[in-house]
Design a protein around this nucleic acid. Structure first.
Length: 589
RNA sequence: GGCCUUGUAGUAUAAUGGAUAGUACAUGAGUUUCCGAAACUCCAAAUCCAAGUUCGAUUCUUGGCGAGGCCA
């Protein structure tokens, strides 16, 4: 029951009755009319002009009149400008829309709910979360909420990269340099504590390499022969053999990291129905390789390594088992995909992973399809761009990362300062205040990371603090708080009686009516930035409306009732939309 | 070397092939006796280059230049 869809259908229908030509309603282009031109919605005629061999003005007139007759209660008039057919929508339509809209049911219920999995976050247990992880976490959480709002069932999962040579590096550094120290000894968060040893490993490694080179060794050889690297490699072997002491140390250090992660996840609001650990899943997929060989999806080379030939699909040949029988990342991922499918049986599975793995996921999906794994077609890669510094890529090895915990704390601190400076919130308890600072600080941060198209890489300048004005989270939070403040004074029970709408009132009704379509678009394209942009436009429009027209002191009681309803719907829409971005909106700020 | 992504005002961003390329920050000029100024109003400023397809190209195609990534 969406107006734009109805306009498209009517267009297709009228063209059919007028000229006997069948066109699909989806190819009709309907836009919002430019503000300078009279009308609300515009149909672009050019496409049909050619197809029907008609002059645009003649076609526009015939089509316009036919559509007026077809939708008499909705359309009041039309005009034609240079091949654009502009319709004015009746006030009665918008009045009905406002009158019938329920702030608790802004999104129509879904006739085809599905079960979807969103896998996101993917932390490493050798370092704390950084800004790139935040983008990942916010995107994953947001997509999950958007899908939920559409009525789907969503399972959030996380795969933790808790094994491998990089983990052994921080382990060996801890053995060598820590003297048995623990996070509680140094009063550090466990993930930061372990991350520091990862950095220490790299410092020691560099020093050892330099020393070997000074002793006359070739740089390349030195990089392979550094004792601390040898130690880490040995440790990995022991880990794989199940050596008790190694496993103990590994468990101990990982538990420190998980304690730290939990604090961060709580603070930023990430949660998971199930967490998978690579240490449990890295051997998965082995039997799938044999199965693939039997099905002739894979083939074996003379050295007994196993491959898949994807050249027919425009890709390369890809190895799935090395000649020594060990598996590769791809094999594990196929195995994990199968396991997740067994455990949750979802219709679709969305992986939130950086764009450096675009190729990997293309291959993963293709292999799963060729192996005919169930739901292989439902694999989607939500690919997002790197967050870079003005100086280039962030590297945790070199300590050039924007730490997630530090950034979050800084944002909370800034929101505290700004709130105190404005001095508007006076009767809050200390607990309420600290919750408010958290809401605003995280709102600014989340909005900042989600307002950009995910696939674009973004540059973050730590020197410039994240804004609180303009296209930002706090701007929208402020708009919401202001509406709520007014509604507290006017009350929220309303009866609408008049069809008359001023231009700004109508514009708001139009903007509000777009919300369900925006949610669908964001879900279809896996792009929360669509919602951020919409939310900003709605808030901005309301602020203009608010500056122009009084609500509580409206000229008449009729107008007051109408504007209160607009306020109620705007606040509810802002709240829902922001929730989709993982951002809370305060009642006061 | 092969493949993928990307290039819009000083900066950051938007635009299913459609009207005069939208918005924010920063800059400049204004708006508080009235519902919350974290707000509102106004000024100035941009599609990397070249060809092609089209009634129409920021968008599609090809080539060049720049940035980033993946596979060896």
């Amino acid at each position: 029951m969406n107006l734009i869809t109805n306009l498209k259908k009517s267009t297709a229908q009228c063209i059919h009755t007028l000229y006997g030509v069948q066109i699909s309603f989806e190819q009709v282009l309907v836009n919002a009319t430019k503000p300078e031109i009279e009308g609300d919605y515009t149909i672009v005629l050019f496409a049909f002009v050619k197809q029907l061999g008609k002059n645009p003005d003649v076609l526009g007139n015939e089509l316009g009149n036919a559509m007026l007759a077809d939708m008499p209660n909705v359309l009041t008039q039309f005009n034609i400008v240079k091949g654009f057919l502009n319709f004015t929508i009746s006030n009665a339509y918008w009045f009905d829309y406002l009158n019938n809209s329920d702030p608790l049911h802004l999104i129509p219920s879904n006739e085809y709910p599905r079960k979807m999995m969103v896998e996101y976050s993917s932390p490493n247990t050798n370092k704390p979360l950084h800004l790139g992880h935040l983008r990942n976490n916010f995107l994953g959480w947001s997509i999950a909420e958007i899908l939920k709002l559409q009525g789907h069932e969503v399972v959030k999962t996380c795969i933790v990269n808790d094994r491998g040579i990089h983990i052994c590096k921080s382990m060996i550094a801890w053995q060598k340099f820590a003297n048995g120290a623990t996070p509680s000894d140094t009063k550090q968060k466990g993930d930061h504590f372990v991350g520091d040893y990862y950095v220490k490993y790299n410092d020691a490694y560099k020093a050892e390499v330099a020393e070997l080179v000074a002793g006359g060794m070739m740089q390349e050889t030195a990089e392979k022969e550094a004792p601390i690297l040898k130690g880490a490699q040995e440790m990995l072997l022991k880990w794989e053999q199940g050596d008790a002491a190694t496993i103990d140390l590994w468990k101990r250090m990982n538990s420190w990291v998980y304690e730290g992660f939990e604090v961060t996840y709580n603070k930023i609001g990430s949660d998971f129905a199930k967490t998978y650990y690579e240490s449990n899943t890295y051997l998965l997929g082995k039997e799938l390789v044999n199965e693939g060989l039997n099905k002739k999806v894979f083939y074996q080379k003379e050295d007994s390594s196993v491959w898949i030939d994807l050249t027919g699909d425009g890709l390369d040949e890809k190895i799935v088992r090395r000649k020594d029988g060990t598996s590769v990342y791809m094999t594990q991922d196929i195995g994990l995909a199968q396991l997740k499918q067994k455990e949750f049986n979802t219709d679709a599975s969305i992986y939130v992973v950086g764009d450096e793995q675009n190729y990997h996921f293309k291959v993963l999906k293709l292999i799963c399809q060729k192996l005919q794994l169930p739901a292989a077609d439902g694999i989607y890669h939500l690919s997002y761009g790197m967050v870079e510094l003005p100086t280039g890529k962030m590297k945790s090895r070199e300590g050039t990362v924007v730490d997630a915990d530090e950034l979050v704390d800084e944002m909370i601190e800034i929101s505290k300062q700004k709130t105190e400076a404005l001095g508007k919130v006076t009767e809050f308890t200390p607990e309420q205040l600290s919750e408010l600072y958290h809401t605003i600080g995280l709102g600014a941060l989340k909005f900042f990371l989600l307002r950009v198209d995910p696939k674009k890489k973004m540059i973050f300048n730590p020197e410039e603090s994240i804004d609180f004005h303009g296209f930002t989270g706090p701007f929208i939070q402020y708009t919401h708080a202001r509406i709520k403040s007014i509604l507290r004074k006017t009350g929220t029970s309303v009866t609408l009686t008049s069809n008359e709408l001023l231009p700004l009132e109508k514009q708001l009704a139009i903007e509000l009516s777009l919300f369900p379509a925006i949610i669908n678009e964001a879900a279809d394209t896996l792009d929360p930035s669509k919602i951020a942009i919409y939310t900003f436009n709605l808030a901005k429009l309301f602020n203009t409306f608010y500056a122009e027209l009084s609500i509580a002191n409206a000229d008449s009681e009729i107008k007051k009732q109408l504007r209160i309803k607009i306020g109620i719907l705007t606040a509810a829409t802002l709240q829902k939309a922001m929730h989709c971005l993982g951002i809370a909106v305060p009642e006061q700020m």
